[in-house]
Structures are given as structure tokens and as C-alpha cells.
Amino acid sequence: MTAFKLPESVLVVIYTPALDVLLIQRADVPDFWQSVTGSKDHVDESFEQTARREVFEETALDCREGAALQPHLHDWGLENVYEIYPRWRHRYAPGVVLNTEHLFGLEVPANTPVRLNPGEHTHCQWLPYAQAAERCFSPSNAEACLMLPRLARRKGVS
């Protein structure tokens, strides 16, 4: 039996105090720059657990339980529901066309080193939030970058 991806995912905008945003380039689609994203591994995995796992898997930045960056992950309390791009629908159960994406922010110090998972991403860059928004392939990712000045001030979450 094939295990289909769950249509529930996270978007984690990683940023510095100066509001520079980390964008990573997908290995399978070179013109696709994005923040950290990923689907839940199983239905019982919380969005927060998914966010912490995906950040570590894709960037080697550790915000998992007990790690130094743990308190810097913030649940923005926002969700996007969007149509899954046709090129990726085969990963989901037949008939699934919508995904729910939960948004998080992760503040890290400037010049924080990033180690990409080469199977998923090939390059990374830090850009001021407005420039990052222009570079993002995904409209929901671009919108999250543009909301960063307002959302970064809301520190009281997770």
C-alpha cells in the first residue's frame, strides 16, 4: 500500500532580528525559492512538531524540544488553504486537491549558519523581507514574508 502525503503542512519563515528572510532553492525545481515547508508525517503529529522537524531536516537549524532555538519558534496562528499544484498531486490520495498550511516564524541571530539537505535544496540566501517576498514562487509564502514586520512583533506563542 502506498503511503500518501497528508494535505496538512507547515510554512516556517526563518528570519533575523533585522527581518532578513532565509530562502532555499528546491533541488527538483530550480526556479522555486521558498521558506521551509513540509507535510505532517502522520495525523497525530502536531503542526508545531512538523515545523520543528522540517526546519531541522531542511536546514540543520535545531528548534526541537530542548534545543537552543526552541523558544524562538512562534506559531503565528494563521492558516492558508490552497490548491495543490498539479505537478505534485500524485503524492496525495486520489481526489485530494486542497492543502491546509499552518504558518510559523523562527527568529535566528544574523549570520546563523545553515546546512541544507542536498536531496531537497541546493542553495540558500538571506534577503530583506520585501525582496524575499518578490523571490518566493508561492503566493502564500510571499504573503507571509510581507506580513513579517507585524508578525515578528507577536512573540507570545509556542
Results as ranks from 00 to 15, higher is better:
residue 100 T to N: 05
residue 119 G to R: 11
residue 100 T to K: 13
residue 155 K to Y: 12
residue 62 D to G: 14
residue 120 E to S: 13
residue 78 L to V: 08
residue 4 F to N: 14
residue 133 A to S: 08
residue 46 S to C: 08
residue 18 A to S: 14
residue 136 C to S: 12
residue 89 R to P: 00
residue 103 L to P: 00
residue 145 C to Y: 03
residue 146 L to Q: 13
residue 17 P to H: 05
residue 62 D to Q: 10
residue 64 R to S: 10
residue 28 D to S: 10
residue 12 V to S: 05
residue 51 A to G: 03
residue 148 L to S: 03
residue 27 A to W: 01
residue 6 L to Y: 02
residue 86 P to A: 04
residue 18 A to K: 15
residue 5 K to L: 12
residue 2 T to Q: 12
residue 149 P to M: 02
residue 129 Y to A: 10
residue 70 Q to L: 03
residue 87 R to K: 09
residue 134 E to G: 06
residue 61 L to S: 06
residue 54 E to T: 05
residue 13 V to A: 12
residue 28 D to I: 09
residue 47 F to Y: 15
residue 126 W to M: 11
residue 84 I to F: 04
residue 33 W to L: 08
residue 63 C to P: 05
residue 134 E to L: 13
residue 93 A to E: 01
residue 70 Q to A: 13
residue 72 H to M: 06
residue 43 V to L: 10
residue 115 R to M: 11
residue 92 Y to V: 05
residue 53 R to M: 04
residue 56 F to A: 03
residue 23 L to D: 04
residue 29 V to P: 00
residue 36 V to Q: 09
residue 150 R to G: 03
residue 155 K to A: 14
residue 154 R to F: 07
residue 91 R to E: 06
residue 8 E to Y: 14
residue 116 L to A: 02
residue 29 V to T: 13
residue 130 A to Q: 14
residue 137 F to D: 03
residue 134 E to W: 03
residue 116 L to Q: 08
residue 24 I to C: 00
residue 56 F to L: 12
residue 89 R to M: 05
residue 82 Y to E: 09
residue 126 W to P: 05
residue 112 T to N: 02
residue 151 L to R: 11
residue 88 W to P: 01
residue 11 L to F: 06
residue 113 P to A: 03
residue 33 W to E: 06
residue 52 R to Q: 15
residue 145 C to N: 12
residue 85 Y to E: 10
residue 25 Q to M: 11
residue 30 P to I: 07
residue 55 V to T: 11
residue 83 E to F: 00
residue 13 V to E: 05
residue 150 R to L: 13
residue 115 R to S: 15
residue 24 I to R: 12
residue 33 W to D: 01
residue 47 F to R: 09
residue 63 C to E: 11
residue 109 P to H: 00
residue 4 F to T: 13
residue 151 L to W: 14
residue 51 A to P: 01
residue 67 A to Q: 12
residue 3 A to K: 15
residue 102 H to S: 07
residue 23 L to T: 10
residue 115 R to E: 14
residue 46 S to K: 05
residue 46 S to E: 04
residue 100 T to V: 13
residue 73 L to Y: 08
residue 95 G to W: 07
residue 42 H to C: 04
residue 26 R to I: 01
residue 137 F to W: 13
residue 87 R to S: 14
residue 78 L to P: 00
residue 148 L to Y: 03
residue 31 D to S: 12
residue 130 A to K: 12
residue 23 L to A: 03
residue 31 D to G: 07
residue 102 H to L: 03
residue 72 H to C: 11
residue 120 E to V: 10
residue 62 D to R: 10
residue 43 V to E: 15
residue 69 L to K: 04
residue 58 E to I: 04
residue 60 A to M: 08
residue 112 T to H: 09
residue 107 E to G: 06
residue 16 T to K: 10
residue 20 D to Y: 11
residue 8 E to L: 10
residue 40 K to R: 14
residue 139 P to T: 15
residue 38 G to Q: 12
residue 10 V to H: 04
residue 9 S to C: 09
residue 19 L to W: 07
residue 12 V to H: 07
residue 106 L to E: 02
residue 77 G to A: 01
residue 108 V to N: 09
residue 70 Q to P: 00
residue 20 D to F: 09
residue 138 S to A: 15
residue 66 G to M: 08
residue 90 H to N: 06
residue 64 R to W: 08
residue 11 L to E: 05
residue 78 L to R: 15
